[in-house]
Simulated assay, not measured.
Amino acid sequence: MEDFGHLKSEMYHGVYFASIAELTKENDEYIGWYNDVRCHKRLQGMAQNDYRLHTLAVFSV
Rank of each mutant, 00 (worst) to 15 (best):
F59W: 08
W33Y: 14
F4Q: 03
N27W: 08
S19I: 09
R38C: 04
L53I: 06
E10Q: 10
G5F: 08
C39Y: 02
D28T: 10
Y51N: 07
T24C: 09
D3G: 05
L56I: 08
Y30F: 07
E22C: 01
V37C: 02
N49I: 13
H54K: 13
I20R: 07
F4A: 03
H6Q: 10
E26Y: 00
V58R: 11
R52H: 05
Q48L: 15
C39N: 08
Y51T: 05
S9K: 11
V37K: 04
E10C: 04
E10R: 09
E22F: 00
R42P: 11
T24S: 12
T24W: 11
R42T: 15
Y16D: 15
L23E: 13
N35F: 00
L7A: 04
G5M: 11
H40V: 04
L23N: 02
D50M: 08
K25I: 03
M11F: 03
M1T: 06
G5Q: 12
H6I: 06
S19W: 02
M46L: 15
S60C: 04
L56K: 02
N27C: 12
N27R: 11
I20D: 14
K25A: 05
G5L: 13
Y51P: 06
F17Q: 11
M11L: 15
K41W: 00
R38G: 01
A21E: 14
G32L: 06
S60W: 06
Y16K: 14
G32Y: 07
V58G: 05
V61H: 10
V61K: 12
L43G: 04
R38M: 02
Q44R: 11
I20A: 08
R52W: 01
N27H: 04
E10H: 02
L53F: 03
R42W: 14
D36P: 01
R38P: 02
V15I: 09
I31G: 04
Y16H: 12
I20Q: 05
Q44A: 12
Q48V: 11
I31D: 09
Y30C: 00
N49E: 10
L56S: 04
K8Y: 00
T55D: 07
R42K: 15
I31P: 09
G32V: 01
K41A: 13
V15G: 03
E22P: 00
S9G: 08
E26G: 00
D36C: 09
E2W: 06
H13R: 13
V15T: 08
D36F: 01
W33D: 13
R42F: 15
E2G: 14
V15W: 10
R52I: 15
N49F: 02
H40C: 09
D3N: 15
Q48H: 06
M46Y: 03
Y16W: 14
S19F: 01
E2H: 03
H13Q: 15
K8G: 03
Y30W: 13
W33N: 06
H54D: 14
W33S: 02
E10K: 01
G45D: 10
N49W: 00
Q48N: 13
D28I: 03
Y34W: 10
V37N: 03
L56T: 07
S60E: 11
S60Q: 13
M11D: 05
V37Y: 04
Y30Q: 01
K25G: 01
G5P: 02
A18F: 07
F4R: 06
K41I: 01
V15D: 12
M11I: 04
Y51A: 13
T55W: 11
D3W: 09
